[in-house]
Amino acid sequence: VPQAATAVKVGQPATVDFADKTSNVSTKLQITVTGIEVGSLQDLTAAKVPTTGLDGRTPVYVSYTVKNLGDASLSFTAPDSKFVLFDAAGNKGLPVLTASNPLPKCTGAKFQGVAKGAETKGCDIISIAGTSPVAVGYTDLNDLLKLQASWSK
């Protein structure tokens, strides 16, 4: 797992910079990864989430809370797009798109209207090649290979 500027345990907050060039929003966020739970392909098929390309991969549910510390509202942004998941071998996971079929166990956050001081909770599904997720990272604004923060169990 790459070294992060801030490394904390799951359940502890980390402050990161967030910028969305499309909506011209730049702010500071306090992110707390609250859970890293191994799921199953059966969870996804039961919720009618497509599993194409997931053979031999393990879905992992990454739960989090995002609090907006800055003045800019998060209306059309997706701060969760900066999450990366690493398995025991240091391999990065791949996001599983669930927008059309939310999974009851893991529902994405709604960022619309998250103004200064407000927070939202959500969950992203990321698949890994192994079965042991070890850390969640939050990438740097300019260099996706660098981490601003990481959370480990």
Rank of each mutant, 00 (worst) to 15 (best):
I128A: 11
S127M: 06
P95A: 10
D87R: 06
A78L: 11
A19P: 00
W151E: 11
K153V: 02
T6L: 05
G130H: 09
K48L: 04
G35H: 06
Q112K: 12
A99P: 01
T131Q: 14
Y61E: 09
Q42D: 15
T6C: 02
C123T: 01
F76Y: 15
P59Y: 09
T139L: 08
K67Q: 14
T107K: 13
A118L: 11
K116M: 13
S75M: 09
A4C: 10
C106F: 01
S100P: 00
D71Q: 14
V25K: 11
A115D: 15
A5Y: 05
V62F: 02
V62Q: 10
S150Y: 01
G90K: 08
V16L: 06
L44R: 10
G35F: 05
T15L: 03
T58Q: 09
K21E: 15
D71K: 13
A115W: 11
V33S: 03
S73N: 14
E119N: 12
L147F: 13
L85A: 10
P102Y: 12
Y61L: 05
L44D: 07
G113A: 03
G53H: 12
T107C: 00
D55L: 08
T52I: 08
G70V: 11
D55M: 07
Y138L: 07
D80H: 13
G130W: 06
F111R: 02
S132W: 00
K116L: 05
A4Q: 05
S75Y: 09
V84Y: 08
Y138G: 01
V96I: 12
K105M: 09
F76T: 08
G35W: 02
L54C: 07
S63Y: 01
S63F: 00
S73R: 08
Y61N: 03
G117F: 13
A88Q: 15
S75P: 01
S152I: 03
G39I: 12
P13M: 04
T131I: 09
G117Y: 14
K116Y: 11
T77P: 01
V38D: 01
G93D: 12
K21R: 15
P2T: 02
G93W: 03
F111H: 07
Q112H: 07
L144D: 15
T107Y: 00
R57S: 05
E119T: 11
P2Y: 00
S23E: 14
Q42S: 14
D17E: 13
K92E: 14
Q3I: 10
N68E: 06
L145F: 07
G90L: 10
L147H: 03
K153I: 04
D17N: 13
T32E: 10
V84Q: 12
Q42E: 15
K121Q: 15
D143A: 07
T51N: 04
K110Y: 00
E119C: 00
V49I: 15
N91K: 15
I31Q: 06
P59S: 06
L141C: 06
G108M: 13
V96Q: 03
G70C: 11
P79L: 12
L54Q: 06
V96M: 01
L29S: 04
T120I: 05
L69F: 10
V10P: 04
T6V: 13
Y64V: 08
L85E: 08
S100A: 14
K21P: 08
K110N: 15
A14F: 08
A88R: 13
E119W: 04
A19L: 06
L74H: 03
V114Q: 09
V16N: 05
G117V: 10
G137L: 07
G11P: 03
V60D: 11
L94W: 04
